[in-house]
Simulated assay, not measured.
Amino acid sequence: MCTDVRTCNVDTPIKEIATVMCFNKISGMPVVDAENNVVGIISEKDILCSMFPDMKELVDSGAKADFEGMEKDYTSVLGKTVGDLMTSVVASVSPDMPILRAASMMWIRKIRRIPVTENNKLVGILSMGDVHKAVFQESLLLNN
């Protein structure tokens, strides 16, 4: 896991989060409160999905999706806060959980990162890349 985790809070502007994500090649980050309790997670997917209209409404109305207009409307998304767009039901793992069990939780939920917590306090984040690296290193050790 990575213990140097970039976090944000519910009041952080999306413009700030998008800047951090784009310039640091981060696809998501935990949302924490003042006591470092995990209260949500915000991802690029959350931000981009907020730009799309409700597909059921779009189909029911018979309207065409104006994708070019949606791209231009991105600035309205930047005016929102993390609390407006974050996923508030967050799965987490403990630091002592077997790595493949943690990976299976990510696979089942179709997520690429999961917060690592102790008593709901953020202590790190585990990504699929971390899992792959750990399994690969263990494989090298066993074969030598």
Rank of each mutant, 00 (worst) to 15 (best):
P98C: 04
M29T: 12
N9M: 04
V20P: 05
T117R: 00
L142W: 09
S92P: 00
S76L: 05
V82T: 15
N36H: 13
R109S: 10
S27F: 12
E35Y: 03
A34I: 09
A91E: 10
D33L: 05
I26M: 09
M55E: 13
V10N: 08
F67V: 13
C22R: 15
M70D: 06
K56W: 03
V38N: 03
L142R: 15
P53L: 05
I41A: 09
V10C: 10
C49G: 01
D130S: 11
M1S: 14
M55S: 11
P115G: 08
V10Q: 14
M1E: 07
D130W: 02
G79L: 05
R113T: 00
R112P: 03
M106W: 04
K121I: 05
A34R: 09
M21K: 08
I14A: 06
A91T: 12
N37C: 07
N24P: 09
D96I: 09
A18R: 01
V5I: 11
M29D: 01
D54S: 01
S104D: 10
V32F: 02
T12P: 03
K80Y: 00
S43Q: 11
V32P: 01
K110L: 01
G62D: 06
P30T: 10
G40P: 02
M105T: 10
M128Q: 11
P53S: 06
F136S: 15
E71N: 08
D4M: 10
V59F: 11
